[in-house]
Amino acid sequence: MSLLSVRGLRKSYGALKVTDDLDLEVAEGELHAIIGPNGAGKSTLIAQLSGQARSDGGSVRFAGAEMMGKPMPARVRAGMSRSFQITSILPAFTVLDNVAVAVQARDGSSFRFLRSVAREARLNEQAMQALAQVGLQDRADLRAGSLSHGEKRALELAIALATRPRLLLLDEPLAGTSGAEAERLVEVMAALKGRVTLVLIEHDMDAVFALADRISVLVYGRIVATGTPDQVRADPKVRAAYLGDG
């Protein structure tokens, strides 16, 4: 049974079809990587799935419910969260508060005006758990803007996790990270496998082939192949379009 079922998804910028009648099935519990050459439309696809960008047509069913036309916050509350390719955090907030605000979004109303939120232990505890998952628990009290790039990438992941998603859309989580930082993030994703359904866009092929249960190959806005890492590696269409027969 698919957790995410995408049918005939479309989006154009003028004459350019960025997403062209795209179909995609993501099974519950799998780590589904989407690879493709630059300009294939990977980030646009994530934006469409998350509700950040409007789609021109098609259907996005999540856990049986139609998500088309719903804005991003509604999709997040339904259980679909995303991370951003370009780090998107609250730089003036502490690391802990960056995550606690995500906990707050799903834990009770935020139209509470008088009680001090900093003293809400339940929010902070859950935020600390998410930070521990990505190895940032020692950084909790720092200003988020002062973190290193790799730490910000980890924070980005912790924020998304704190929303307790059933489906996590990761847009190049390793973008710009160095070897050691990337290794740590790959470990984090490996630990998440099976507990959260993951859709992963990533340029680091070693990471993709090590982590993915299934891989879909996106070329010019269409999925040209889907399969296990071995199947995809052997697919002649993929080799022609993407791996360059190398």
Partner: peptide
């Protein structure tokens, strides 16, 4: 200093981030 205030300040800092956590 309340929940509301934190969300308000967050929208000043980065509204897309706030939408992406469900606000």
């Amino acid at each position: 200093g309340s929940r509301f205030g934190r969300v308000l300040t967050g929208t000043r800092e980065n509204p897309v981030r706030m939408e992406a956590v469900g606000f």
